[in-house]
């Protein structure tokens, strides 16, 4: 939640800075008070964000192990990274995950919100059912995924056997074939995290005044027309926001993949965060891991920039 989620919001906030008349107090007093109020933040911010940020630059120029700094290698770690097939493969895997899950997440969230929004009587029930997976610990969700997609006794295969979609004796090996593994990981992730986006869409739908629909209905609009011509266009600002949030968040995927496939088969689903962790803590190479972190940072920065641009265009329109 701490990446550049709220670009528009912050721009508005910044433009307020000059205009708002503030509390009346003299200059020096204001400086002292402000420092006092900002101090707790500045301390943790400096210690655990700014300093690591700087430290990371230093580390990426060294061969650096878990025990100590070893030797200066200049840009060596970065040169190595650009030729490292594993690194680019892991970037690609995270990208695949983003490409699969983002559109599905949006479509599913809209469908669920439509369901809850139509049922005023059962709305609380639907809201709870669709949201409750989101509060599970990431570990619980991941292990549920692991067992749900097991061959032979897992929930999905058993259900498919029960309804005879899968013939007796046949098994689907969800987690050991690359393409199926992506499907399983994505389904689990959708189930686990769609709740947040669902709630955002639901509240956006509820903000649309009933009169709008009533007027359209009087003009003879069908349900489908209402959805495509009224609901969907009105949802487009929130869709843009969710899309960008989703892309950035999905790019940082790690635990569910780590638990469900371990990054396999043959590292074919290993996301970039897992590679960074393995490089740093399994291969004892914090320097190289720092360099990779900076590449990840650069990528996320570009995505954030893109988000800023998209949101600003929205403002301009």
């Amino acid at each position: 939640m701490n990446s550049a989620d709220f670009a528009v919001f912050t721009v508005k906030s910044a433009s307020h800075m000059g205009r708002l008349a503030l509390m009346k107090m003299n200059k020096l007093r204001a400086d002292v008070q402000a420092l006092l109020f900002l101090l707790p933040f500045l301390v943790v911010y400096f210690l655990f964000t700014i300093w690591p940020m700087i430290k990371g630059v230093e580390m990426s120029f060294y061969k650096w192990t878990l025990i100590k700094k070893m030797k200066y290698v200049g840009l060596g770690n970065y040169e190595r990274m650009f030729q490292d097939h594993d690194f680019w493969a892991s970037i690609w895997h995270s990208t695949i995950f983003v490409i699969i899950t983002t559109p599905l997440m949006i479509v599913l969230a809209i469908i669920l919100a439509l369901i809850a929004n139509r049922n005023s009587r059962l709305q609380r029930f639907y809201r709870s059912v669709f949201f409750i997976p989101s509060i599970l610990s990431v570990a619980v969700a991941s292990f549920l995924g692991l067992f749900v997609f097991q061959p032979y006794t897992g929930l999905v295969n058993s259900m498919l056997h029960l309804v005879k979609l899968l013939p007796d004796g046949a098994e689907i090996f969800w987690l050991t074939e690359t393409n199926l593994a992506w499907i399983a990981i994505s389904l689990l992730t959708l189930w686990w995290t769609v709740g947040f986006n669902f709630i955002l869409y639901l509240s956006a739908m509820q903000d649309v005044p009933d009169e709008v629909y009533e007027a359209a209905r009087l003009d003879g609009a069908t349900d489908a027309q209402l959805f495509w011509r009224i609901t969907l266009p009105l949802l487009s600002p929130i869709t843009k926001t969710i899309t960008m949030l989703q892309i950035i968040a999905s790019f940082k995927v790690f635990m569910q993949i780590y638990v469900m496939t371990g990054g396999g088969p043959l590292d074919q689903t290993r996301p970039v965060i897992q590679l960074i962790w393995q490089t740093g803590f399994r291969k004892n190479d914090l320097g190289y891991a720092s360099a990779m972190s900076y590449m990840l940072f650069a990528i996320l920065l570009v995505l954030s920039g893109l988000q800023y641009w998209v949101n600003n265009r929205k403002e301009a329109n």
Binding site: N2, I273, G280, L301
Partner: peptide
């Protein structure tokens, strides 16, 4: 806001 926690973990 632009510094993702994951990128500075190491």
């Amino acid at each position: 806001l632009l510094i993702p926690g994951e990128a500075i973990l190491i």
